[in-house]
Design a protein around this nucleic acid. Structure first.
Lengths: 196, 196
DNA sequence: TTTTTTCGCTAACAGCTGTTAGTTTTCCAT
DNA sequence: ATGGAAAACTAACAGCTGTTAGCGAAAAAA
């Protein structure tokens, strides 16, 4: 009966998407029904369609918002005039901060993108692939310049990216260490594993 | 019409579970219907119920089979008389091999356990928690003995476990490096990140 | 061969899914 | 205060979900 309360500077659609991100993260995209979502928003399921056009549009908005931020950040880092280790560190720190501050949406992007359908599916797959390739490129450059130990670059990428997504368990743990400390610990372990 | 073909030394139920593991891995538990599964097994959906009692029983069997193997292995390592770094390395190598050789089921256990329901859900949650605690315990012991650098143990655990689950992308990649090489690369990066 | 067990089939169920149509209420701008 | 837009409601849809019942065929045991 009552209207959805907007947050300051946000549309009602934003409210729906942010509640959806929380539910998608907790239960997964497929296990979250529109009636579930509606209840958490405080409205009937049909009413959601005054603000969005489909369930999958919600997933699309979440995934592309996150993916675009990551893509534009990595291009910035790649173009910067720093050495390979510094670049890797910058990328890692950005990842960790995003995962700490923007948990729900980043996590959903990471785990639920499979449930997109074409053309969005192939689009996000391409975006993810070229993201990994950029990192691999930086690592290979570092190996050539003897800044990074001689390892298989795709393997290093895989470790980095998945290690970061483990921040999920940090969020779920009772007694969290502060975010900044988490960041430093992760950097220490991961970067020291790479450094020559 | 024709019966499900058993593999040597396997029941028809095993065939169903192994096909299910593949589908659950590809599309997720909720997105895999019994009719989907039946089609891949070569049978009508209702016929599956001659061998299993419910869809969730399939997930239970997958998850507990995997979880039990990991639990019993870590206890073995924990009891062995080796130093902390060697223990961590042994655990990591076991993880990597399981992830390489028994991909589908290990992956499903890792990503889909959420969809279990009580009492199985709390059971697997406990098992996973005590697994992480065992590793943290080994790391803390290593820090005390100055074998491992002074880091937050839960963070190190989180990195290790999630990094390993990234072997998913290795499986999906076109040109894989050999499994043994993958293993050595991962050990090099992860263990060198820990070593004092 | 006959009997018994195992296992596949078809048909059907009740409940849930995302979504639409049509109507009524709420609220902002005039 | 009032007209119009925005957004809520109810009712309903077609399709899919996991699962059961009952029956006939195939294979195993006798």
């Amino acid at each position: 009966m009552a209207k959805i309360k907007r947050n300051k500077n946000g549309t009602r659609k934003d409210v729906i998407i942010s509640k959806a991100a929380k539910l998608f993260r907790e239960k997964g995209y497929n296990a979250t029904s529109m009636r579930d979502l509606a209840e958490h928003v405080g409205v009937e399921a049909a009413s959601l369609y005054n603000h969005i056009s489909s369930k999958s549009e919600i997933l699309q908005e979440i995934c592309f918002k996150v993916a675009n931020e990551f893509t534009s950040h990595i291009e910035e880092v790649y173009a910067s005039s720093t050495n390979s280790i510094e670049k890797i560190e910058a990328i890692l720190r950005f990842h960790i901060r995003q995962m700490v501050d923007n948990y729900e949406e980043v996590y959903v992007n990471d785990r639920e993108w499979k449930h997109l359908s074409d053309p969005y599916l192939s689009n996000i797959q391409n975006q993810r692939r070229s993201y990994r390739q950029r990192i691999a490129q930086i690592i290979e450059e570092g190996i050539r310049k003897d800044e990074i130990k001689s390892i298989d670059a795709p393997t290093a990428v895989l470790i980095m990216l998945h290690a970061v997504s483990g921040i999920e368990s940090w969020h779920r743990s009772k007694r969290k260490i502060p975010g900044a400390l988490l960041e430093d610990n992760m950097i220490m372990i991961l970067v020291d594993g790479l450094r020559r």
